[in-house]
Design a protein around this nucleic acid. Sequence first.
DNA 1: GATGAATGAGGCTTCATTCAT
DNA 2: AATGAATGAAGCCTCATTCAT
Lengths: 216, 216, 216, 216
Amino acid sequence: MTTPRHTASKRWTRQPEERPKQILDAALRVFCARGFAQTRMDDVARKAGISKGTIYLYFDSKTALLEALIERAMAPVATQLEAMAASAPEGPVAPLLQTMLELAATRLADPDVAAVPLLVIGEAGRFPHLAQHYRERVIEAGLGAITSLIQRGIRAREFRPLDPALAARSLIATVLLQAIWSTVFARPDDTPLHPHILAGQHVDIFLNGVKTEARR
Amino acid sequence: MTTPRHTASKRWTRQPEERPKQILDAALRVFCARGFAQTRMDDVARKAGISKGTIYLYFDSKTALLEALIERAMAPVATQLEAMAASAPEGPVAPLLQTMLELAATRLADPDVAAVPLLVIGEAGRFPHLAQHYRERVIEAGLGAITSLIQRGIRAREFRPLDPALAARSLIATVLLQAIWSTVFARPDDTPLHPHILAGQHVDIFLNGVKTEARR
Amino acid sequence: MTTPRHTASKRWTRQPEERPKQILDAALRVFCARGFAQTRMDDVARKAGISKGTIYLYFDSKTALLEALIERAMAPVATQLEAMAASAPEGPVAPLLQTMLELAATRLADPDVAAVPLLVIGEAGRFPHLAQHYRERVIEAGLGAITSLIQRGIRAREFRPLDPALAARSLIATVLLQAIWSTVFARPDDTPLHPHILAGQHVDIFLNGVKTEARR
Amino acid sequence: MTTPRHTASKRWTRQPEERPKQILDAALRVFCARGFAQTRMDDVARKAGISKGTIYLYFDSKTALLEALIERAMAPVATQLEAMAASAPEGPVAPLLQTMLELAATRLADPDVAAVPLLVIGEAGRFPHLAQHYRERVIEAGLGAITSLIQRGIRAREFRPLDPALAARSLIATVLLQAIWSTVFARPDDTPLHPHILAGQHVDIFLNGVKTEARR
DNA sequence: GATGAATGAGGCTTCATTCAT
DNA sequence: AATGAATGAAGCCTCATTCAT
């Protein structure tokens, strides 16, 4: 068994285009694994396969790295939520809600995706502006989209009358909390709960729970 | 009748016996406000009204402080959950579930109570044993208690057949996530969402969603 | 030859009263020897016989150390200059000027005293406010005191008419520059130029050069 | 007739031959403005309009840059001083001294010229060989030239007997110190003291102070 | 020759922990 | 038991220098 030499004999290569992405990807992993405060810039650098100083060619500080990271993760979510809310097709909203929840469950089953809200939760105390930004662009946007759909359902007598904002929380909490739990409390030997199954039954309960009472 | 250990030769009146509690209370507050890593022992000391060195008379390290804190918060919850599960009265479980959820909502509305799960979530990456312990004694116990009640409801045809473990998650997630959110994303000018209202409508939706279909 | 054990068996002693002075003294020496930028806090600490962290119990930063140092050195000089200017006795000013110059020469012969103006000169580029403060409190005060004495001499026909401010510069420059040179360009094997001799001849030349022309 | 080394295949017009001068000029400015230690190679490069790496094609290190800089500035001064000392015309030395001082004052009024002694003063602690070299080639040469002229004046009974070496210091200190002060303590809104005026009065005082007493 | 991305040693500063009082 | 001065290891960040392009 020979010791494989590295195929690249160069100590490093220029990759100014790729570096920011490499660094953010690495930072997400290590911040998530150890927490922001416990992560050393060296950890990020090693994970990205570069040297410590190189990070500072692209990001001003450790904090700037965190902010860029969260900003990057937030942007597509916020965009998609707005698009969804704007383009909901006519007709009953129940199937729509089901689709959205399953989509969310699938997305959040990816640890890299679930990592970001967790980071925000963990660092909100230290970086209130981050938390506020996340709240506005993601949480309120998401809750708003769901809330308006539920409201539509109520108006159309598809659902019985109830507070649509609270109902929206009832609908999405299970999926979100599951994402948090499976990331935080995962045990190595755990069979991960398939997100579709949980989301499926939850949506079923919810829709049964909110649907207009059968004529009496 | 307390046994005074010292014969009135001291000037300070605070009893050593109260110190651990004072320290833990202070630690909970500051850990929660700034996060564990960002909190200095000086912060804890100042909050407790004592000096930094004194903490080390009662706790071996900063980590030990965190562990004691979480342990202390976990104990009564675990005890109560076990008691509930053991002593559930006969009859329909729906009112029981409602009571439990409202109790949980009320408890978690206290920031000092909600702080603990948040701490665990934030530090799980660094202290896996803490996370595991919390999972076993609180999460699994709580989910177990709810699950077995739901199972009883299903057996009694009070509820339609579904996976009781998943249903338990559906039931409690809304209340827990609300506790997390209102702690993390609270805005100073926010009217806090009264926990009873959210829990009330959520339980209503849930119970309507799981109840046996009324024969029509 | 035995290895002498330290008489103090304690690793350190409490000296909260003495520390600031100890630290400033040490800092003056090492800043002067190596320059501010080239000096590590470790150097200061070692010179002061304490640990690096201790410095930060008394000074906020390396820069604060420099500022405190210069402030401390400036205060007595400024005070003395003001006192001198205020309490000059009546009569001819020539002996006064001679006394002042010799005093200045003696003072500046102490390397610890000469070090401060040198520090200011070296760091003026980085700390303009320091330079400005020094200029106002020391240089302008000193020049002002000398200038007003010379003016008195001119008014009393003791000196011939000339620009007193420029004459003040002529008078003190030699002593000051000598202080700078002997600090900067000192060679170990140099016999130091005795300040009194230089100052003595310089004042003699100066006073001869400014005295009223013998009646013609 | 210059020999073009490249056959017009390059786009840039700056000749490599000019680079060292460009770099040294830039370095002088920024070293003077911020001090040697506080100046980054990037600063020098930007000032020179080239890139950081290019400096290393011409100079081995930052220190080499400083040394080359000072060496370059020293050479003409040393040469001129030697020439002056060698070719002093016969007759009274007073006009000669006056000319030299005014020349020095004029030269030192150029901040780029005054910058060099200041740099040497500031970095003498770190680069003793620089200081020694400067002392030998500039200071001792300059003092020597003046000293020997004064000695000539004493021998010719133009001046009264005094220590010519100390008198030389008395003569030049005012001009040098003024150069230092105006560079270090310059205020933006200051009308700079015209060097000729200061030097003029100083030389007048000095020559009056050293001239043989008019028999009365 | 020129560039500027990449490196990594080094310094300031923080803070958990110790210990003399 | 309590204090808080003192310690020193550890981490963020800078920047002189190198080197692939």
